[in-house]
Design a protein around this nucleic acid. Structure first.
Lengths: 226, 226
DNA sequence: TTCATACTTCGATGGTAATCGAAGCATCGA
DNA sequence: TCGATGCTTCGATTACCATCGAAGTATGAA
């Protein structure tokens, strides 16, 4: 009939509340089992199973079997970015699943976005890297400079292993709480992993919140001055 | 139940094929009447009316009465950007409403995206402005430099009238055919209007395609060298 | 006033899809 | 081999909503 991409397909996948809840849960970056996801969505296992099959067929989720468990996760970085973008739009319209509670400030400060750091801290980190000319901006694309390469190696991140992946190293990702960009891509993922590895930050249970320790706060401020 | 924005609401609005078709038609930037939109969606006027009420209630569309006509259009720039983003995602997954036809090349070359220029020409224009340091990039934000301000005034665009609007002057918008950014915002709108005003380009009937005249092609290449 | 056009509202219908109980299949531990 | 756990498939039910005919409202033209 008409030319162009079909947005109705994706819309209908996201449009069901149960599926939307599962996708939001998976924005935490962890791979989850159908039983866990059913809990998040408030539905039975059977229903969840049928939803997950649809999301997988639609290319939004991927699956891997491990023993008698089945782990679902967002199929690609792009899916997470697309969802984050939708969340940003929804948030700007005041479409919230409930009124902001006490958890909210912590969520705005630092949280996981699929697999990298988001919230105030995520935005500050990217700003600082750009200010230090360790990351360069060109349109929507980001590029690691030579100085940046030296810098992350010094932090203990192996540059060549980042490069191996087909995914981009640096990438912008719009933040729904800050309405600014933060750093995604394999580097964004590696940096968050580093913070947690060093004991600077910790993921809160069953939540997207990231809590920095006192020493972690200091280290972060030193590494990424404002 | 959970914290965060509700994407299911928006998803369900976009998820209905009739509504998706109407939204896609409105991405052409023109305000359209319920009768016209019903035609685009292949439904009766009554059904279209109910869909339009829902889209308006959801904040995606706005409406203005003019005599016995009612004109619907995308409520804000942000709606167009969000839809364009979804289209980009859908296109990358090969979710198309039909196989690419003969119209496609022209659509990829130059088309309207809500109210500004998209496609190959749109991307080239932004790249050229950045290369000439007339637009500056900072994260996802764009800023007009002093040189850029002089430049657009020379083209006959009144800078202060652009500034009056609450909408941003420059803004990136992801292109689903090029997978790169082009220029949105009031300046993007003003530039497209300029091209059409000078007779360099013309909108094709009932389509998002923009056809450049021979002299328009030359003028465009001179203004925005690669 | 009268008729025509543009659109909305109401009401009834039908189809689709979300939901869950029950049964079936696979994996693991003993 | 047996039972337990995790998950899928099947089938039946239910609820929602897109759809359209018919009637109602508003604007404009004659």
């Amino acid at each position: 009939m008409k030319e162009g991409p079909d947005i109705a397909l994706i819309g209908s996948l996201i449009g069901d509340p149960a599926r939307a809840n599962m996708l939001t849960a998976l924005m935490g970056g962890r791979a989850l089992t159908p039983t866990e996801l059913a809990g998040h969505a408030g539905i039975t296992l059977q229903t969840a199973s049928s939803h997950l099959a649809k999301l997988e067929a639609g290319g939004l989720l991927s699956q891997r079997k491990q023993g008698r468990h089945r782990y679902y996760q967002l199929a690609e970085d792009e899916v997470g970015l697309m969802l984050e973008n939708l969340m940003g739009f929804a948030a700007s319209r005041g479409m919230n699943r409930h009124r902001p509670g006490p958890k909210d400030p912590a969520l705005r400060k630092a949280r996981v976005c699929y697999n990298h750091l988001a919230g105030d801290y995520g935005v500050r980190m990217l700003d600082s890297l750009i200010a230090a000319k360790q990351i360069e901006v060109a349109g929507d694309d980001l590029a690691l400079t030579d100085a940046g390469q030296v810098r992350i190696e010094a932090l203990g991140i192996n540059y060549s292993s980042l490069k191996k992946s087909r995914r981009p190293i640096c990438r912008t990702c719009l933040d729904w709480s800050e309405r600014r960009s933060h750093l995604a891509g394999t580097l964004g993922e590696a940096l968050l992993a580093l913070f947690i590895d060093k004991g600077w930050a910790k993921r809160e249970n069953d939540s997207r919140i990231i809590r920095f320790t006192d020493s972690g706060e200091k280290a972060f401020s030193n590494l990424f001055p404002q």
